[in-house]
Design a protein around this nucleic acid. Structure first.
Lengths: 197, 197
DNA sequence: TGTACATCAGTGAACGCGCGTTCACTGATGTAC
DNA sequence: TGTACATCAGTGAACGCGCGTTCACTGATGTAC
């Protein structure tokens, strides 16, 4: 709450600081490096302090996941906003945002996508409270057609970019600059997409 | 080595037993449940015994990964062997083996695919020592064509089935029996594949 | 075939470590009057 | 404006736990002669 330039004795926003510290730890040392004690140390408080803000390590992880999801949505949306306003460029921009997020926040993405959750499962209305998945659904919308409907398109696009991002980050798909690098557009040229009339 | 039906005092094949125990622990409790002490207990030996067979926990994890890769290759190959001997059925069979392995060995698959490794990175000749990836490459071979060559086809197929398997296992893609289930064939009908002449 | 000996796999006690959690406490903040 | 008091965030010592690792040991196995 405090906007004073003096560092208040009562931290001010320890909760946010702990989430940030947690993300840093995650990115430096992977999920095994994420502990309450280390987060507290990095935020400059005693190791017992986090108990006032989170329900154990699981609570912190939940908060980090939420923060990550919002960063993820932002990464995709800002790419889309910078793209030409037509279906293919928007789709590719979304996917580039997806891939970049994985590259820039590898361990965080790993944490987010290695939890059993239904954060991204659609409700009957096709929407969810998860902003990131809604962005993906919107980017796919112009391409929905055929007997398989939206499910095939969305799952194909999602699976393709999820798998590609994951394999890239894990070093399975060559990042060697001497090798010809495959682009998102090249990858998606393999997909049978056309703008529905 | 011993094939005697009597349980020998010197375990006989403790190394293999520890790998098996490790896989069981993994599948029961995820990667955090995988410890040397628990593996030893499950294999019925003292907790110091594994040190004679593995270089620490990392060594055990490496051995489990290797075993997992071989199970993974077998899962795909046996599906292919049971399929009609033509390109599409073989490709779909490979993918079903891929998906089934993830479903049946979730935590093991997770462990295998969340390591930075180049196990599956192709050498210049397009082959690798990894049997699983060679199976995937072979299944893709009939479809290679166009200016993008083998890379686009292989990466698209691999990314698609990897993403789909991962998202399915993580519960992101609905497994609700009331929802229309999307099949591997439906998914791959979205991919622009044709048998090269 | 028998004996002596080296090798090797597994034992069990002990160690230090980092972890999450608890608890009485302190000191700053906010509020009632 | 001032005082009394409740609330709340952070402290620091202490706890028990499971972990990997070490080490002297034991007892079975394999080998040389």
């Amino acid at each position: 709450m405090s906007k004073s330039t003096q560092k208040p004795h009562h931290h001010g926003d320890l909760r946010a600081a702990l989430i940030l510290s947690g993300i840093e730890l995650l990115e430096e040392g992977g999920v095994t490096a994420l502990t309450l004690r280390k987060c507290a140390a990095r935020a400059g408080v005693s190791h017992a302090a986090p108990a006032h803000h989170f329900e154990g390590l699981q609570g912190l992880i939940r908060a980090i996941t939420d923060r990550g999801m919002s960063m993820f949505a932002t990464a995709m949306q800002s790419k889309i906003d910078a793209a030409e306003d037509s279906p293919f460029p928007r789709l590719y921009a979304m996917c580039e945002g997806y891939l970049n997020f994985f590259i820039e926040h590898q361990a965080l993405a790993n944490l987010m996508f290695n939890q059993k959750s239904e954060l991204m499962t659609k409700s009957a209305g096709g929407r969810t409270t998860n902003a990131a998945f809604n962005i993906l659904v919107s980017a796919c919308a112009p391409f929905i057609h055929g007997p398989l409907g939206h499910q095939a398109t969305e799952y194909a696009v999602w699976s393709l970019i999820q798998g590609f991002s994951h394999l890239t980050v894990m070093g399975q798909i060559s990042c060697d600059p001497n090798q010809p690098q495959i682009s998102v557009a090249d990858l998606f040229s393999m997909l049978n997409l056309q703008v529905a009339e």
